[in-house]
Design a binder for these strands. Sequence first.
DNA 1: CGTACACTTGAGTGGCCTCAATACCTGTGG
DNA 2: CCACAGGTATTGAGGCCACTCAAGTGTACG
Lengths: 286, 286
Amino acid sequence: MPQPHDHPYIVARPAAPAAETEPRGRRRGLQAQTNPVMSPASALTRKLAARTSLSPADLEFLDALYDETRLVGANRDIITEGYKYDALAVLRHGMALRYRVLRDGRRQILNIVLPGDFIGFPACFFDTALYSITALSDAVVSSIRFPRLFQLFGEHPRIGAAIFWLFSCEAAMYAERVIGIGQRSAVERLAHLLLELLTRLQIIGLADENSFHMPLTQEQIGDMLGLTGVHISRTFRQLRNDGLVVIAGQVLKIKDLRALAALADFERTYLSHFRMSEALFPEEPG
Amino acid sequence: MPQPHDHPYIVARPAAPAAETEPRGRRRGLQAQTNPVMSPASALTRKLAARTSLSPADLEFLDALYDETRLVGANRDIITEGYKYDALAVLRHGMALRYRVLRDGRRQILNIVLPGDFIGFPACFFDTALYSITALSDAVVSSIRFPRLFQLFGEHPRIGAAIFWLFSCEAAMYAERVIGIGQRSAVERLAHLLLELLTRLQIIGLADENSFHMPLTQEQIGDMLGLTGVHISRTFRQLRNDGLVVIAGQVLKIKDLRALAALADFERTYLSHFRMSEALFPEEPG
DNA sequence: CGTACACTTGAGTGGCCTCAATACCTGTGG
DNA sequence: CCACAGGTATTGAGGCCACTCAAGTGTACG
């Protein structure tokens, strides 16, 4: 994957446009990333394999896991609130936002969906979707129909348990956001979000030691943290003035990781605790 | 259980307390559920049966579901953050709070756990618990060890799917709280909480048409909504002045349900949407 | 009758919001 | 090439919602 660092989150685009100064040929064409969609292991497989040991049969099953794959253009809904969906899906490529719009137009972004994350939890377990999910960039989504999901639980218990555990992570991340919005100040929330993004992007190989490409506008960050975009700008300035972060273009670099973590009360543990309890595996498979 | 009316929200107390202002013989709504503590069906079984049809074998399995049962006194932790737990548990009796305390002492209450709710999701799927759960009143907790849980998924797929769905509800409730704290004002949040409590208590038969016993102090409500207890007091006054609610003793009565729901932008659907998708059952069991 | 706890209410403060103006970048079209 | 529009970020002025601090009430309990 030899791309520079313009849009590091687009994993598979072969000819990624370099810097933002360069002229780019076509804007919203989807054709670029079609063929090498997911190289040897998908993001989901990587996430699972990092947490539990998978048998060759498991890996084979994961390779043929998806029922259908579709492309979603940037800024288009993958899931729309109120509609019915009867399959679980996985975001295999690109990024997306899960959000809800209230009657009066206020919007709350619940979380950012990264490659390898599930889409449709908890939506697909309800009769109609509770939230909308919109693609931040061109995205690739694959679906898993329920029969296959249950087959999975029956025949590949380790994968089933791991997926169970991924759902737990999802719930835990919502809970962490409740804590953040409920109790922390604007700087703390922003610092926490930056560290969360850095950590999650590192896990799937889309961030280096201390910098990453910020995929969100300041207004989106505000909608995510219960603040206004204007105030996000002021808060960023504060972080910059304190020498904690540097923003160059759309690349955000964390200059003092320890200080930022201390400010945010960020416990890396809360993401590294995201390892599966061994108790989930009372018996080893053959 | 020999104490007087000090903790009236303890479900199973035979002599339900009266409101302190008016000497009426029985409390409204609390009367019905007094003696049949957990009789014929547990709260969990009732919740499941309301959503899916259970075979006699399923019911029999549910009756013998629990591995051990223990009592927890009021104000004692059922689960403590940072410790390891290797079983899923169900709150069978009493109420509890799930919360996290930050370094500087701020506390965020994530939700209130009612009879029939799971304890230990997502805690038990991590190596150490992410949050603490403390008993509001004397409580009865039963645990389900993992082997039995997996047995359940293998041998009683309908129950397994239903439990899956309950976890989805849990995640969705966290997400709703994010939306509430992130976007709504103090009155809206409080109104929403009151309606959520009313609805959830009604489902398990602990509330009547428009009133219920408020199990939380105002400071606890504040910690739940990201506000201070003082401001909860002011907000309650506003709701009282507007003729929306009445508080007598610890019984909260909603006088104008429609107006309160409109104020809170409360969609009853968001709880009634909590019915399981039929898609979860591609095939009927025998 | 004194302590403890929850609730109420007031006065003053502060964090974040709203409104608004400006600058910048990018793509589009004259 | 420049003009223009749309989206994004920055910065200022003023306002409001919720906070902090504090005093006072009512109830429960020893």
